[in-house]
Computed example of a mutant assay.
Amino acid sequence: MGKGGFGIGRLGLWWQLRQAAGQDGAPVPDIPQGAGPLLLVHVSPDARVAFSQVQRRLMRARPDLRILELGDPSPSAAEALIRAGPAALLLFGSDLPPGLIDAASRHDLPVILAEARLAPEDAGWTLRALARRELLRSMRAVLVTDPASHATALRMGADRGCVAMTGPVAEIRDPLPCSEAERSVMAQLLRGRHAWLAASVPPDEEAAVLAAHHAALAQSHRALLFLAPRDPDRIDPLAEEIEASGLTVARRSRDEDPTDEVHVMLTDGPTEMGLWYRLAPVTYLGGTLGGDDAAARHPFEPAALGSAIVHGPMTQRFATEWQQLGGAGAARQVADAEGLAAAIAELSQPDLIATLASNAWTVSTGGADVTMRICAPVLDAIGKAKP
Rank of each mutant, 00 (worst) to 15 (best):
A218E: 15
S220L: 06
H221V: 11
R222V: 08
L224S: 03
L225W: 13
F226C: 09
A228M: 10
D233Q: 14
D233G: 11
R234W: 12
P237L: 04
L238C: 02
E241C: 08
E243R: 08
G246H: 06
G246E: 06
G246K: 02
L247R: 00
T248V: 12
R251K: 11
R252S: 03
R254E: 13
D255I: 05
E256M: 00
E256H: 02
D257Q: 12
D260Q: 06
H263C: 03
V264D: 05
D268E: 14
D268N: 12
G269R: 00
T271S: 11
G274Q: 02
L275K: 03
W276M: 01
Y277M: 05
R278A: 12
A280S: 12
T283G: 13
Y284D: 03
L285W: 04
G286H: 01
D292P: 11
A294V: 14
A294H: 15
A294D: 15
A294I: 14
A295Q: 15
R297H: 15
H298D: 07
P299D: 08
F300H: 03
P302A: 07
A303I: 04
L305H: 06
G312M: 04
P313W: 08
T315S: 12
Q316V: 09
F318M: 06
F318C: 07
T320V: 09
T320N: 09
Q323E: 14
Q323L: 13
Q324K: 07
G327V: 07
A328I: 05
G329T: 05
A330W: 05
A331F: 10
R332P: 11
R332S: 10
V334R: 01
A335N: 11
A335V: 11
A337I: 09
E338T: 07
G339A: 08
G339K: 07
G339F: 08
L340D: 02
A341N: 10
A341H: 08
A342Y: 13
A343F: 11
A343S: 13
A343Y: 06
I344L: 13
A345F: 06
